[in-house]
Amino acid sequence: MSGLLGGIVFGLVGGVAIALSTMVGVYGERKIAAKIQRRFGPQETGPYGLLQLPADTLKMILKEDITPRQADARIFKIAPYFVFVPIAMGLVVIPVAAGWAALDSSIGILFFLAVPSLSVLGILIAGWSSGNTYATIGGMRGAAQMISYELPRTLSVLAVVILAGSLRPVDVVQAWRWWWIPLNFIGIVVYYISSIAELNRGPFDIPESESELVAGYFADYAGIRWGIFMMSEYGGMLAASLFGAAIFLGTLTWLPGPFGIITFLLGTGVIGSSMIWVKWTFPRMRPDQLMTTAWKVLTPLALVQLVIVGVVVPWL
């Protein structure tokens, strides 16, 4: 009984966490972008513009729900959930305290790598069912980009799995040592760049580029349906930052006992803010540069990292 009830409670908590992280993320993004561009961000609604995001959410919910005439209506409407649900499910296996995770699975790391990759389907379906060519092209580009960057991301996480000797996130957190950071440095960089590319963020946002494809695969989505796409992007950022902070940087064990969660959340915030920083600093990459980076730069680097770890492991 506690299984089902616990599952529902965690589902609600996770949903609220993603919604909150989206609000914080979008607010942070607008403020950080403003700082970088030497202007002020939202500052009218509420003190320091803190009520801007709740106001925007209210506006989105009240917008008219438009479905384009040439769109496949039923699939058009469920496509955002195909993107959101896998990314939200990925949050379930992340350890939040040293020795505890919502779903303590023995293959948790593989689960985290595999399940969010299903959102590629949502992007393809969203683009295709919108009924216009630009959305379809945006969807195909987005899908090609996401599946290309899955490879270096998986390989870089594999290096940490080899060091820890287990696919269970709780085991990896408990086996973490400080010298894993210099040893895995290439892997950390590869994971960071691949995560940004996976989320179609930052310099890799060709599929949703405002200046070229008019928001690409979600161009025809109005109001709260667009909001769900945004929630999956920021939820994915949250998941990638949490995972990186827990597995690669080991922030859960920097402070002993239950205080580890403080450094964990701080580390997550640092990684998330740096992702926002990167987006507003670097120019957008061309699609062919994007693919070249994934296949010719990041994958060989991840393999080099695997070789380094493989050579060092017998000496441990």
Partner: peptide
């Protein structure tokens, strides 16, 4: 998990492409 990763995340995406 391998089934989901390879089949749904790979083969199905291939078929959609």
């Amino acid at each position: 998990t391998v089934q989901v990763f390879v089949y749904v995340g790979g083969v199905l995406v291939l078929i959609l492409f």
